[in-house]
C-alpha cells in the first residue's frame, strides 16, 4: 500500500526521531537504510536526532556506574523531548537504556530534578512528553501486520528463526509488553512477508553479547551464539531474523569468529526485521545493505 492510499484511509502522517545508537550507524548502516525505507512506504517520516551519543549500553555502562548511565541516557531522551518527537530505536540495548531511563524519570520526580539540574548546562530540560518506542512497536502498532501483508510484492519463501533478544521484552515490569515467555509479535511480522517462522530449541535464549560479556570474554559469549545458531540449523531454519543491532552483530560477525575460534561453520544468513520486510517489498539486497554482511545471503534472500 502506498502513501496516498494510506492517507485516503485516514492515516495521519507520523514523524519520529531515530535514535541510532552505535552498532546501527557505525557497523550495520544497512539496518538504518532499510528501516527508513520501510517506514517511508507507509508515510512515516524519520528525523535525525542531532547530537545523540551511545545510549549508553544498559548492561555495560549500567554495570560500571548507574549514575553516568542514567544521565547520558536521559540526555538522549531529552534531545527528542526538546523537538517534541517520539523516538524509535533499532537496537534492544538502546531500547533498554532509553526506555528504562524514561520510565525512571516519569516514576521518580527526584531523579527528574537531579537530571534536569545537570542537563540545564546544555540548555536541555527533560519534560517527559515523548515515548521511546522499539521499531517492532512501530511496525506492529502504527502500521500493523495486515498493512504489511498487503504491501508485499516479492514474497519470502523460507523457513525463518525468530530471535527476539532480551531487552525488547524484559524486564516486562518496565517494558510493559506482557509476558516475555511466549511472545508472538516478531513471528507475526516475519509471517507477514509470507515466510514461515519455525520453532527451535531455546528460541528465547540470549545471543550472548550483552552485559559486557562480548568485550570481557569473547569465547564464552560466542558459545551462547554457537548454541543458538546450531539449534536453528537443526530445525531446518534457513535464516535468522532479529530485532536488535547488537544481537545482529553477534550472530552475523560472530559466525566468522566461531569459525576462527571453534572451527565450526554454519553460514546462516542474519537479517534485521526491516531488511526482511524490505526484501518482500521489492527492495534489492544491495539497497538494504545485505550484500555487506559477514555471512552472505543465500538465493532466497537475493533480489
Amino acid at each position: 500500500m502506498g502513501y496516498d492510499e494510506f492517507r485516503r484511509e485516514g492515516g495521519k502522517m507520523k514523524e519520529y526521531a531515530y535514535f541510532l545508537g552505535c552498532i546501527t550507524p557505525n557497523r550495520y548502516p544497512g539496518i538504518e537504510a532499510s528501516t527508513i525505507k520501510v517506514l517511508k512506504r507507509f508515510g512515516i517520516e524519520t528525523r535525525d536526532l542531532n547530537g545523540a551519543s551511545c545510549c549508553p549500553a544498559p548492561g555495560v555502562f549500567g554495570s560500571f556506574d548507574l549514575n553516568t548511565w542514567l544521565l547520558i541516557a536521559a540526555r538522549n531522551v531529552t534531545l527528542a523531548d526538546m523537538i517534541g518527537l517520539d523516538i524509535y530505536v533499532t537496537c534492544n540495548g538502546c531500547y533498554g537504556s532509553l526506555q528504562e531511563a524514561d520510565h525512571l524519570l516519569k516514576e521518580r520526580p527526584e531523579l527528574k530534578e537531579w537530571v534536569n539540574e545537570i542537563l540545564s548546562d546544555e540548555g536541555l530540560e527533560y519534560k517527559g512528553r515523548i515515548k521511546v518506542k522499539h521499531i517492532i512497536e512501530v511496525l506492529y502498532e502504527d502500521i500493523g501486520v495486515d498493512k504489511i501483508k498487503d504491501a508485499v510484492v516479492s514474497p519470502i519463501n523460507a523457513k525463518i528463526g525468530a530471535h527476539y533478544g532480551c531487552h525488547f521484552l524484559k524486564p516486562s515490569l518496565v517494558r510493559g509488553h506482557g509476558s516475555p515467555e511466549k511472545p508472538t509479535i516478531l513471528d507475526e511480522l516475519i509471517e507477514a512477508t509470507c515466510a514461515e517462522s519455525i520453532d527451535y530449541k531455546d528460541k528465547l535464549m540470549c545471543c550472548g553479547a550483552g552485559g559486557g560479556l562480548r568485550s570481557r570474554d569473547l569465547n564464552t559469549s560466542l558459545e551462547f551464539t554457537r548454541q543458538k545458531i546450531a539449534n536453528m540449523k537443526d530445525a531446518g531454519i534457513e535464516a535468522s531474523v532479529d530485532t536488535c543491532a547488537f544481537c545482529h552483530l553477534q550472530m552475523d560477525r560472530g559466525q566468522i569468529e566461531i569459525k576462527e575460534k571453534f572451527g565450526e561453520e554454519y553460514n546462516l544468513p542474519i537479517l534485521f526485521i526491516t531488511q526482511l520486510i524490505g526484501l518482500s517489498f521489492g527492495f534489492s539486497t544491495k539497497e538494504l545493505g545485505l550484500d555487506k554482511h559477514s555471512i552472505p545471503m543465500t538465493e532466497k534472500f537475493i533480489r
Partner: peptide
C-alpha cells in the same frame, strides 16, 4: 560476577 549477560530471565 561478570559472566551475566543481563538477559533478565532469572528476574522474570
Amino acid at each position: 560476577l561478570w559472566m551475566c549477560t543481563t538477559c533478565y530471565t532469572c528476574y522474570e
